[in-house]
Simulated scan of single mutants.
Amino acid sequence: MRYVQLRAFHHVALHGGFSRAAEELHLTQPAISDQVRKLEEEYDVRLFDRHKRQVRLTEQGARLWEITKRLFDAEQQAADLLSESRALRAGTLRIVADSALHLLHILAAFRRRHPGVRVTVRSGNTETVLESLYRYDADIGVLGDLPERGDIEALRLNSTPIVAFAARSHPLAGRGPLTLAELAALPLVLREEGSKTRRKLEQAARAAGVALAPAIEAEGREAVREIVASGAGLGFVSRAEFGADSRLVEIPLALPGGPLTMDEALVCLRERRGAKLVRAFFDAAAEGGA
């Protein structure tokens, strides 16, 4: 049982329909229907009788609603209490990012404005960032793309091309752009399968009829960087994340459809966009970290 499933059920019961519940939660009707369906399937129970555009609670659904009314009433009371607290002076903001490099200027500005707030930053790929948000293990995420989800609020941070990189001592260091066919014949160091950078490269290669297979697969950007620096193969990263490392050399890519770009975005659950700390961090980001 997940919180989002109970929340979807509760609002359908409260508002008497899936469309009105979706409007209230700023989600799509299919998203609400899917959450309720999963809840019913997980426990092999029917919570609503559906007839055309009308829905009615079953006996089991009515009993569950009595519980969720107490649950969400308590949640609202907690929210009211916390809204009166010192959130912007002594709260904790949890961030999970595919790369903290995109946050540096925002973090500095946020800390100047709210020095009492504790900020935690964890690393993760696209999949783990979204999972952390949906599990409420994080307040804000940073993704290597703009998500197309109705329940996610996003703010674009930057857009930069994906490039290859190699150890300075590598035979290809300093040469011109590499094609996909050339990459297929080289030892590649790729991130885990949940990585958006890897997914975009593999999609571009498949479209060109080329197969890219990792000689080494490593979890996390830093692990890839260290392996590449040892001379074991070529890695890939967005140019904004290449950074300054005297051991490494950037190598551009020559792709049939033009550059592959990573649109880094600051994201949060739409329902949490109004939370004080989340709103304050998005404000700092929108103002360019000034």
Rank of each mutant, 00 (worst) to 15 (best):
I95V: 15
R191C: 02
V142L: 09
L146S: 09
S99P: 01
H105C: 06
E192I: 04
S85P: 01
F110A: 07
L155D: 03
E75A: 15
P187S: 11
D151Q: 03
K196C: 00
G124S: 05
E84G: 15
S169N: 06
V142H: 00
V189W: 12
A79M: 08
D80R: 05
E193V: 07
R89P: 00
R113Y: 00
A185G: 12
R94M: 08
G174W: 14
D145W: 01
T197D: 01
D139G: 02
V119T: 10
R112C: 09
S99T: 15
Q76F: 08
L104K: 09
E182R: 01
G91H: 03
H114L: 03
P177A: 02
H105L: 14
Y136R: 12
E127H: 08
E193G: 04
T92G: 02
G124M: 05
A109R: 08
D139Q: 03
A166L: 12
I106K: 03
L178N: 04
R112I: 13
L107I: 11
A138S: 15
Y134R: 15
I152P: 00
T126W: 00
L107W: 02
A154P: 01
L188G: 03
R199N: 07
V96S: 09
D145P: 00
T197H: 00
E193H: 04
A74P: 01
A173G: 13
R198S: 06
H114M: 02
L133S: 10
A185D: 10
L190P: 07
H105I: 14
A173E: 12
L107H: 08
I106C: 14
S132W: 07
I152N: 05
E182G: 10
P177N: 04
T120D: 08
G116S: 04
Y136E: 11
V142K: 01
L188T: 14
V129E: 05
R112F: 11
A173W: 10
L93D: 12
H102N: 15
H114R: 03
P115E: 07
H170E: 14
A90C: 03
V117Q: 01
N125A: 07
A100T: 13
P161A: 13
S195C: 10
E75I: 14
L81C: 04
L190A: 13
T179L: 02
S169L: 09
R199G: 11
S85V: 06
T128E: 13
A138H: 05
D151T: 08
G176N: 05
T120R: 06
L107E: 12
A138N: 07
D98I: 09
A97E: 11
R112L: 15
S159I: 12
P171V: 13
A173C: 08
R118T: 12
I152Y: 02
H114Y: 14
I162R: 11
T179P: 00
V96R: 07
L93E: 08
G91Y: 02
S195M: 05
S159H: 10
L104M: 11
R94Q: 13
A173F: 10
P115T: 11
D98N: 08
R156N: 09
L146F: 02
Q76M: 06
A100W: 06
L104R: 10
A108C: 06
A154F: 03
A87R: 07
S169R: 12
S85T: 15
H114W: 07
A184N: 02
P161V: 13
D137V: 04
A78D: 06
T92S: 09
L101Y: 07
E153C: 00
L146G: 04
S132N: 11
N158Y: 11
A184T: 07
A138I: 07
P147Y: 03
S83K: 14
